[in-house]
């Protein structure tokens, strides 16, 4: 998963300081592993270098000056492309998909499309594996079955999440 894209997605809701970004990230995605400030600023530096974000202002408080970052038009385009690109179907990619879905909901984007694009990619993969197993020997058959059952579990998660999108939208926008 691209952490920089997650930061980009959070900035689509409006300009924010590094501190705000860490707080919002931890609120939505940091249940197991809260973010380190160093990770946030490293991602911001990379995004600035690529022109995907810009410094929208600097504030002088009690401590060191704080920069506010905003997404640029190129950043919006880049984020749009990332959200609309299915992940390579593989085991345990739910966390990436979950992040994409939450970011889409936060930004008011069609989160159902994120799930639908992924579902289509998964079904395509399953068709290919089914073709392989019907043409292969028993070993090939068992290997393909293993992959098929995992992809099927992902698909169930996708369908369940699609059915719960309204509920999730209420939760993340609370």
């Amino acid at each position: 998963m691209s952490f920089a894209h997650t930061v980009l997605g959070l900035l689509e809701n409006g300009p924010a300081h590094g501190y705000d970004l860490k707080r919002v990230y931890d609120q939505h995605f940091g249940q197991d592993r809260p973010l380190h400030y160093g990770q946030v600023y490293a991602a911001l530096a990379r995004l600035l270098k690529k022109g995907l974000i810009e410094v929208a202002g600097t504030e002088q408080g009690d401590g060191p000056e704080r920069k506010r970052y905003a997404i640029t038009d190129s950043g919006v385009t880049d984020l749009h492309t990332w959200l609309g690109t299915p992940e390579a179907p593989q085991q345990y990619l739910q966390s990436t998909l979950y992040t994409k879905v939450v970011l889409a909901l936060l930004a008011g984007r069609p989160a159902a499309d994120v799930l639908e694009v992924q579902r289509s990619a998964h079904l395509k993969s399953m068709r290919e594996l089914t073709r392989r197993k019907t043409e292969g020997d028993l070993a090939e058959h068992l290997i393909c079955d293993h992959a098929l059952f995992h992809l099927e579990a992902d698909l169930r998660w996708l369908e369940l999440t699609a059915a719960r999108l309204d509920e999730l939208a209420t939760e993340v926008n609370r």
């Binding site: 998964h122 079904l123 399953m126 068709r127 594996l129 089914t130 098929l148 099927e152 698909l155």
Partner: peptide, 12 residues
């Protein structure tokens, strides 16, 4: 409603 079964088809 089973993706595993649908995967035998040419399209969905």
């Amino acid at each position: 409603h089973e993706a595993r079964v649908a995967a035998y088809a040419d399209r969905e």
